[in-house]
Design a binder for these strands. Structure first.
Lengths: 127, 127
DNA sequence: TCAGGACATCGACGTACGTCGAAACAATCC
DNA sequence: GGATTGTTTCGACGTACGTCGATGTCCTGA
């Protein structure tokens, strides 16, 4: 029955090639951002611009090893599908990567992207 | 006529008492954010989560002295009311302060808040 | 006092977003 | 294979958000 699946649905969700999401973060202070640069950078900030996503991100970042499985961080007051939706947003923004290990899926913060966003702001504050 | 105005409409828009907007930024990595902390912090990230606002912010940050009048930064492809709306959002988030000087209104980046947001991310990346 | 420029507010419109329950998918255990 | 648990996807719903034109407010200069 249905031997041909329409989509294989990657078993391990890829970390999202970093280039696509963030060629990253041209300085905010050196010159005004172009429309394209702003579009790409805004995606990352928008991802952290929701209370639930911020709590999920914080829960993962503060978990030992900087990673946590979904089951560890689902106590944020919304339904489980909603948690999954938000984690997907964070992953698409390049801030998290995920990997399935047996029954559970583990999410991990993507240090390079986070650090780049931080530098961006630090430099803007120093200007 | 109408000698009694309903609202005085502050001549100089205040920098927004910093406490209200950000008692600021508890570490993302030390422990999971509470609901309230996430709510307050998300406002700041959300403010930078729009391409037009990011371009306005960058235009101000990259302008000499870290400040610019609205007339200097209105070339972002949206109408004047929309620019005003976005600047208000950034100010309400505590990221900008504004001051009227004669005919023009000058916006300036609020270094302490921006720096705090940056530290937040840097620490999360280092975890 | 009045005209004009700079900026903010108002009200309305369309779209994007957060949320949920139901259902599909994946791995494990019996 | 079937039941069970963990996670994602789907479809639908209400609300929040970005955008605009029209209008109001504040300041300046004649």
């Amino acid at each position: 029955m249905s031997t041909a699946k329409v989509l294989p649905l990657a078993k391990v969700l890829p970390p999202l090639e970093p280039e696509a999401v963030a060629p990253c973060c041209p300085s905010l202070t050196e010159r005004p951002l172009t429309s394209d640069e702003a579009e790409r950078t805004a995606v990352m900030f928008k991802a952290l611009g929701d209370p639930v996503r911020l709590r999920l991100f914080s829960a993962i970042a503060s978990h030992e090893g900087g990673e946590a499985c979904v089951c560890d961080i689902s106590d944020v007051g919304v339904s489980q599908p909603t948690v999954s939706h938000h984690l997907k947003k964070l992953r698409e923004a390049g801030l998290l990567s995920s990997e399935r290990r047996g029954t559970w899926v583990y999410y991990r913060v993507e240090p390079s992207v986070i650090a780049a966003m931080g530098q961006l702001l630090i430099r803007a504050a120093a200007a």
